[in-house]
Simulated scan of single mutants.
Amino acid sequence: MLKITGLTKRLGDFVLDGVDLTVADGEYFIILGPTGAGKTILLETLAGIYTPDDGTITLDGRDITRTDPKDRGIGMVYQDYMLFPHLTVGENIGFGLRQRKADPARIREEVQETAALLGIEHLLSRTPGTLSGGEQQRAAIARALVLRPHVLLLDEPLSALDTSTRDRLRRELRSICRATKTTVIHITHHFEDIFALADRVAVMQEGRVVQTGTPDEVFRKPATGFVAAFTGMENVYCGVSRVLNGEATIDLGGITVRTVSEIEGEVCVGIRPEEVILSREPFESSAANTFPGMVTEIQRNGTFSRVFVDAGVTFVAVLTPQSVERLRLAGGVAVQVTFKASAVHVFLR
């Protein structure tokens, strides 16, 4: 188990501010947040590149807060690979073992085994400059894994790759980490990474961790308006909640929505776009919330379309192009907006 308690680090005007996190043994943990939130500084502090001003880092019960980086049992892989250009792939992978003065026969064996795990054993005699981006990233990951780290830190390892390579390496990462039982902390901006890889997620904002949970908890039950907006919950509104017998009626000004909540007073509500159902006519449903509206805009994006509807407040729904065509949606078309009470997430302002 990796436990981070009250971790604080000031770098110029930026402050990593009292971060508390616990990452379980073998867990694949992803950290989200906008640029400047402190994600990379957190990873580099865990790796020992920075010494914290306050707080502790323990790994398997051992305090490593001020332990030398090479003795922490933590490996780190950056987005830009950072391979040595004058060394072969095999020499790059075995570099850390040579620094540890391991037996040459053992180095050859470990390099071959780790390269095979990443599917790059046929590239061991090549130099990094002759490899594709995906091959270089595999070599960088192999260089970290060959040292058998307790924790592997990945700083946006897939961001520089094309879509097909990223999808393929994403699948490989998950299977490799399961096979080696390596604990992983992974920074990403891609939501696809989260649902494909993460056991749990943390969201950072301005040097603080503002929410942790499973991917479903964070995306469907954001703790703050910032988390809701950052995770793509576009339908966020503020209003006044009144609760009777566990059912909340929330006045948003233009409309009133119903949900199950015990939170009263000034609140915000969020509804994910994929939870919003559009129809041309009212239909029989158990959904608690149905409102007439009018389509104001359709934004097409290949595999899906974002449909904007004025129904007292502006809702955004995500539909396939086929659904848009089947419903004959266009600007000025009257529609019904429907969503379940369970789709409405309530949080304090």
Rank of each mutant, 00 (worst) to 15 (best):
L2S: 03
L11G: 01
L11R: 13
L16Y: 05
D20G: 04
D25C: 00
F29M: 03
I31T: 04
T40Y: 10
L46C: 01
L46S: 03
A47R: 08
D53A: 02
D53K: 04
R72W: 10
Y81C: 01
P85I: 03
N92R: 11
G94Q: 06
K101E: 12
A105L: 12
E110N: 06
E113D: 12
T114R: 06
A115K: 13
H122T: 15
R126S: 11
T127I: 04
T127F: 10
P128R: 14
P128T: 13
I141Y: 05
R143F: 13
L145T: 07
R148K: 15
L154D: 12
P157N: 04
A160P: 03
T163S: 07
L173T: 09
A179F: 06
T180A: 00
I187G: 00
M204D: 11
R208M: 07
G213N: 07
V218W: 15
V218Q: 11
R220G: 01
R220P: 00
K221S: 11
T224R: 07
T224M: 01
A229F: 06
F230M: 04
G232Q: 14
G232W: 10
G232N: 13
M233V: 15
V240K: 14
V240Y: 14
L244E: 15
I250K: 03
T256A: 14
G265I: 13
A288F: 07
N289Y: 10
Q299C: 10
S305N: 14
P321N: 09
L327M: 14
R328T: 10
V337G: 03
K340L: 05
K340Q: 03
A341S: 15
A343V: 07
V344N: 04
V346Q: 07
R349G: 00
